[in-house]
Write a protein that binds this DNA or RNA. Sequence first.
DNA 1: GTGAAAGCGCTAACAC
DNA 2: GTGTTAGCGCTTTCAC
Lengths: 339, 339
Amino acid sequence: MARVTLKTIAIKTGYSITTVSRALAGYSDVSPATREKIVAVAEELGYYPNLTARQLQKQRTDTVGIILPTFGPRFADPYFSEIIAGIGDELAQQGYDLLISTCPPGPGELAAYRHKVEGGRVDGLIVIRTRRQDQRIAYLAQTSFPFVAFGRTDLDLDFPYIDEDGEAGSYELTRHLISLGHQRIGYISAPPDLMFAHFRLQGYRHALTDAKLPYDEQVVVYGDLTRRGGAQVARRLLSLTPRPTALIAANDLMALGAIAVAREAGLEIGRDLSIAGFDDIPPAEITSLTTLRQPIYEIGRRLSQMICALIRGQTLEQSHVLLKPKLLVRASSGPPLHT
Amino acid sequence: MARVTLKTIAIKTGYSITTVSRALAGYSDVSPATREKIVAVAEELGYYPNLTARQLQKQRTDTVGIILPTFGPRFADPYFSEIIAGIGDELAQQGYDLLISTCPPGPGELAAYRHKVEGGRVDGLIVIRTRRQDQRIAYLAQTSFPFVAFGRTDLDLDFPYIDEDGEAGSYELTRHLISLGHQRIGYISAPPDLMFAHFRLQGYRHALTDAKLPYDEQVVVYGDLTRRGGAQVARRLLSLTPRPTALIAANDLMALGAIAVAREAGLEIGRDLSIAGFDDIPPAEITSLTTLRQPIYEIGRRLSQMICALIRGQTLEQSHVLLKPKLLVRASSGPPLHT
DNA sequence: GTGAAAGCGCTAACAC
DNA sequence: GTGTTAGCGCTTTCAC
């Protein structure tokens, strides 16, 4: 079980470590006969280069990092698995590994980032779920370490990102409900420090204003992005008088929670109450939920492409990508009962 | 942007690299005054140890690897995000990083494993979705590299694993349907080389035999674990005469596909046709799908605990863990129409 | 208490 | 063509 290193092969073949290294690396300045001998012995011994040593020497790790901002004990959010799949598949193709950590948002987070960056653990980072005054972005931008973000921020910094145009999407969705005749539309927002929550709420708000409908803070509540959380706050909205005739949730999971609550209350979705979400996660289709689709897997791939390009020192053709989500009208939204 | 290393601090403080190293590591044989000075300078300069160098020296990476067996272009399987969450959270707590790769099952897979193991990229590996004659397990067992598996295999090898007792679960579920009065129960299996597919099918088979019902190969079909795949083969089952009065799918995703197809055909789930799945992914609850619950997140945590213990050279109190899935009877299963 | 020296496994500059 | 030397940044004997 002794490790086979260049030294092992050098001793066995009688050549120097350097020559062995060059032979194996396919350099042209080593004689074919020598190379053959060395390669044969390497195969026989089952030689495999030590990646850590190579990393130390080359001063790069061929690894991209991502730190998942997990709230609470678990994140069953399908969003994460989709994006990791996209990121991982693309990185594999480009010859990079993916180092994943989990860290709850908060003061300890920066340490996790420094750990990766200054510890030389990765060559680049992908930041997801950007927040207002996002300190992770602030830190990374200042170090000039290669990174890309999924999401913008409200800091005055220029950095490469991909984002969905949540405002436009949300605007379109709200208009859709308004055009169906809804006048009192409840809104279940995500935690307001998340940038996407901010944009999505803005879109809702502007659509109301443009339609000369009042923006009523009473019908805007905040959930924690989970199904359970959505259910909780939906209950509040449904107990209001007059009751909203439609509900928009800032993500599908909360919308699904709202649906469950509405059903419990004996309401028929799409008729007595319209509900819409955001993301188009798989269950949304099953539940016939009207929603806005983001191609998360594809976004993951593109994030990987961008970070790989940055690591290689290339300049991006496009460093700010804004994707328009696609409105999918399904059975969960319909005209209000009394118009 | 020059890297701050021990050398930087050594030069600045006038001490040797050795002393700086020891001071920062908190060794007792360095005078308090010296330590203080060194620590101060380190902080001022924003020193952060180079993890790669440390890894090379210590001959360990404090990293655990997992290679996701992705089929096709994407794996939206909620199962993956759950288990990664569990694994990642626990590893973070134990001070380990998680290195994730993706690799489709096949001949290239072993190379990916060797890359991690012999390249010294990780200290241990987690293998998921074991298969019959699993070559990954065979390889790892032979190298005596630390690893744990989620799932057993049919090789005659002793290795640490956690597994669900898919046979017992499937047996119980099938009995449940039989006791409701079903006599012709269709079965949508997963690809047969997956061990869990094998066990789940066995449970179904034994339950039939024990109830003196025939095992009819005509009603056993194979799907690819996706919703779409489940829908495809469910269509075949529903066109048989006599039509099965109940369907079991080897995972929830395929069960959901079957439900969609049945609804299209005008069947009311739980009345005209009973359907059951396996896993209890979030949409299962929403859809009122009778299923078998596995605590995937918890399994992820336990896998991490085991691998960490193994890496530390500890012996496991329990190296073969078999968990019994819990039957959740929901509205998708009921008695057949004509009994 | 502190420093010099060796070495983890590899690559690269430079001689011969 | 091949070997010598140095060095990536760190830890760890072993002297003093």
